[in-house]
Design a protein around this nucleic acid. Structure first.
Lengths: 139, 139
DNA sequence: GTGTTTGCAAAGTGTTTGCAATTTA
DNA sequence: TAAATTGCAAACACTTTGCAAACAC
């Protein structure tokens, strides 16, 4: 017998990457992917769930962010050695980091990803090139 | 009366940046600056003090690394959101990060530091541009 | 029903801090 | 001796984990 229940877009996307579409994962996915590119920390995402009335624990937010990252739905951004940032934009691009506020933003019209150092150490391959333009001042 | 005690190079350098040349700071400075460029974490530097028989606490290693950084003798490198790395090379340059081992190395013949995004957000100025080439494989 | 996921609280990791004792100048 | 520095242990911030209860299929 075929399952005829309505299946949302998000439900399908989670299934597509092998994750059960649980209530918590669906809610987090909608927060993350429903409104353009986002840069979040576990804490900031958890805060949004609380404001929105979503019932989920902080531990589950951490776990879910990592599961989404492993599944290729998110990318982790390293700019600060005290917090982990996650980016919903998984395309090749780089970041501004606002030192004063701790915020992150994608560098628009990013033309600097053609960097490919030729002299790599023996037996290594590039996993990724991260460029962070650290800014002082507004925002 | 003039102080005629022998004053080492390191002693003078510490005084020059306004830090009292204490036994601990001298020993750490010698470990850090005595043998070419180094990339250390507080823990790795502390381990070296223990091997070398230098008596210093881990808290002092942390404090000293930050004091040296504020004084411009070290540069902090962000590559991993769990550990803080410090680099004795304070010139403008970038890094390889060996994901497998957690090690850092300067990118040799670094010709990629001329990146200066033109479209900066309003009222900001560049504090620094960090480029990390993340590698998988050997080392 | 069976295996997966969740939530909680406890444990973990790297780092910072308060303060008395020590050292430097 | 006055001020700066150290070491210790306790506190901290962020993150991960163990396990029983809840959930998805």
């Amino acid at each position: 017998m075929v399952d005829l229940r309505p299946t949302s877009e998000t439900t399908r996307e989670l299934r597509a990457v092998g994750l059960r579409p649980t209530r918590q994962r669906l809610a987090l996915a909608r927060l993350l992917f429903g409104h353009g590119n986002r840069h979040v920390t576990a804490e900031s995402l958890y805060d949004r769930t609380q404001e929105t009335g979503i019932k989920v624990s902080l531990a589950t937010v951490y776990n879910t962010l990592h599961q989404f990252t492993s599944a290729g739905l998110l990318r982790q951004v390293v700019v600060d050695s005290t917090r982990s940032y996650f980016d919903t934009n998984i395309e090749d691009h780089h970041h501004f980091y606002f030192e004063d506020s701790g915020e992150i933003a994608d560098i628009p019209n990013d033309r600097i990803n053609s960097i490919a150092p030729t002299d790599l150490p023996a037996d290594t391959e590039i996993s990724r090139v991260d460029i962070v333009v650290r800014l002082r001042g507004a925002r």
